[in-house]
Design a binder for these strands. Structure first.
Lengths: 211, 211
DNA sequence: ACCTGAACACCGTTCAAGT
DNA sequence: ACCTGAACACCGTTCAAGT
């Protein structure tokens, strides 16, 4: 059932997942899904954990190098997985009681932090910050472009172009920052942007751990 | 209309906002809302920007001190606003074409970054990282507790208690990190956690800007 | 130009009934 | 123990009709 859920999600996005379509795929009635799962939220909790097994497998060997670098490797792997499947962002670690893989991934991140000279509280904060940054950033990037722009259908590129154009129209005296970064924004790559932010966070962590 | 939308959101949460209830409040028909707004998403885009005016007013005087500290002040103010109204997280800066206040707040953050010795790209990445971290972390904290835990209704405290209990039941050899932080998690304060993470990010930024 | 509200299409969820 | 699918309650959105 989780496999079919993920397949539907991959093919038609979060909006394409509904119980009627899922039941059809499984060759059963709508009601039978409720025998295995108590709600759509729980289905997505479990589906996201199901998919997380791949992330876990990909980082199984991580742990031998510099702790901060290993933290970065795991974070980037998780980030890529959420960019691939944006619905992951909303459900990852939402309820670890039914998400053993999320818990294992959290532990794996934490084990890198265990190798840093930090207090327990600092470690807790550091790992939480990394997870928060990864999930928050990835979820932001995975957003559908707003449908209300202009009239008719607008794709992501057109929305971004309209945004830069808006920035350039602003008064340069009142908006010096937006003017400065308009070029950057136009040429920006989401993954670069994520990595740059993650590097800032990890640089701060390294400093806290004593270099 | 935006004021009534926000009032409904504040009183009954995101789930309590629907066009029938809103039309009732406004003393009109459901259809008339579509004269002012093309979809529910646009309504929420505009409502979130409406509310952001308060944040903007609160940070109007910021800018005289240390740039990194000023960045922190603005970030904390935004964080508090999203914790207060979790639906803000999903709509903040989603479509700046209809969100002038979000744009101004982004500019205000950016102007602090302008006072740091950074390249335009670094500034863009830094401000994006701060916003991503704030929104991601606040949105995560604002989540409803999963309803599927155990049977019956469970509030946030019970869910957190069940989570710590789960961690303590895990094998201590295989999950050293979760065991170590169980106590921290039990006593943790969301705002402290956010500030600690933000400080790591800002420490990294300060380092990049040359101390 | 602005509003009305019935109607439409589509949801998640329930439940009496089956096997 | 597990499944069925009609029915329910509740959505966002549309649109012909009004003023």
């Amino acid at each position: 059932m989780l496999t079919e859920t993920v397949a539907l999600l991959d093919e038609h996005g979060e909006a394409g997942l509904n119980f009627r379509a899922l039941a059809g795929r499984l060759g059963g009635g709508v009601g039978s899904i409720y025998w295995y799962v108590s709600s759509k939220d729980e289905l997505l909790d479990r589906a996201s954990d199901h998919v997380l097994a791949d992330v876990l497998a990909a980082v199984a060997e991580v742990g031998g190098g510099d702790p901060v670098d290993d933290l970065r490797t795991i974070a980037v792997t998780l980030f890529d997985a959420i960019v691939d499947r944006p619905w992951l962002g909303a459900y990852f670690m939402r309820n670890t009681l039914v998400q053993p893989n999320a818990l294992r991934l959290f532990e794996t991140l934490g084990q890198q932090a265990l190798r840093l000279d930090l207090t327990a509280r600092q470690r807790f904060h550091a790992v939480s910050a990394v997870v928060g940054f990864v999930v928050g950033t990835a979820a932001d990037l995975g957003q559908e472009p707003p449908a209300e722009v202009l009239s008719g259908e607008v794709d992501r590129d057109e929305y971004l172009a309209a945004t830069v154009e808006q920035w350039r129209q602003l008064d340069a005296e009142a908006f010096p920052y937006l003017h400065e970064i308009a070029d950057e924004f136009e040429a920006h790559d989401d993954t670069d942007q994520f990595r740059a932010g993650l590097d800032l966070l990890l640089a701060g962590l390294r400093l806290q751990a004593g270099g």
